[in-house]
């Protein structure tokens, strides 16, 4: 299973891999929003957590269909299914690789990009913490959606429609925790909700995704 993780990471940094795609998209959003909203630092600082969270979520969505589709097309998913790797384990490794390539860089970059929106000092810390807690759920839910749509040609649209509603709770609680934290209020409850969503999806969705893959491979 570690071999699968290392292979996916290696593929993502080689030519044509997904590394940097999400990050570039995230940077574009962070750069463009201040132009669109205007230069009032106060307004920007107030909407920054929400914008950063939406940007991170959409950047995550961008590379979801690659999780299983490429392996499905070149036949390696069939071969993986017959290999001595439990499908659930393969799903977890694929989601983890997606998170390391997309979610983690977004988490690390968000505090920096927050500066583009005049985010004040404790805000950087809160963006980092909430994204660190929330992005694993985005990758795991996305892997489930990708498993459901793996056999479909151009399944990206269906994938987005399936996954977006599932992303909403993570977004609401993640952005809420960051906003409350920045305002100096108690953010424990939304933080716990985000952590709970992540823990729940990591615990349950690998089984659902593996079942969906098995059906799609028939």
């Amino acid at each position: 299973m570690i071999a699968l993780l290392l292979r996916d990471l290696r593929l993502s940094v080689r030519a044509g891999g997904g590394f940097g795609l999400g990050l570039a998209f995230f940077l574009i959003v962070s750069v463009l929003v201040p132009f669109g909203v205007g230069p009032e630092a106060e307004i920007l600082a107030r909407i920054a957590p929400g914008i950063l969270w939406v940007g991170a979520l959409l950047a995550c969505l961008l590379s979801l269909d690659r999780i299983f589709q490429l392996d499905f097309e070149d036949g390696s998913l069939d071969l993986l299914a017959t290999a001595p790797v439990p499908m659930e384990g393969a799903v977890v490794m694929k989601a983890l690789a997606h998170w390391l390539v997309t979610g983690l860089p977004l988490t690390l970059a968000a505090p920096l990009f927050g500066g583009l929106m005049s985010m004040a000092a404790p805000g950087h810390w809160w963006m980092f913490v909430t994204l660190l807690l929330g992005t694993p759920a985005l990758s795991m839910i996305g892997a489930f959606g990708a498993a459901l749509t793996v056999g479909l040609k151009r399944g990206g649209l269906l994938l987005s429609l399936l996954v977006l509603p599932l992303y909403v709770p993570t977004l609401i609680f993640g952005a809420e925790a960051a906003t409350r934290g920045m305002a100096g209020l108690d953010a424990t409850t939304p933080l716990l909700m985000v952590a709970g969503i992540t823990a729940g999806s990591v615990a349950l969705l690998p089984f659902a995704a593996a079942a969906a893959l098995r059906i799609n491979l028939r």
């Binding site: 036949g75 069939d78 071969l79």
Partner: peptide
């Protein structure tokens, strides 16, 4: 050990 029509190769590796 199953050998399918497709070889399951990664072009970048």
């Amino acid at each position: 050990a199953y050998g399918a029509h497709a070889d399951g190769l990664k072009a970048q590796l």
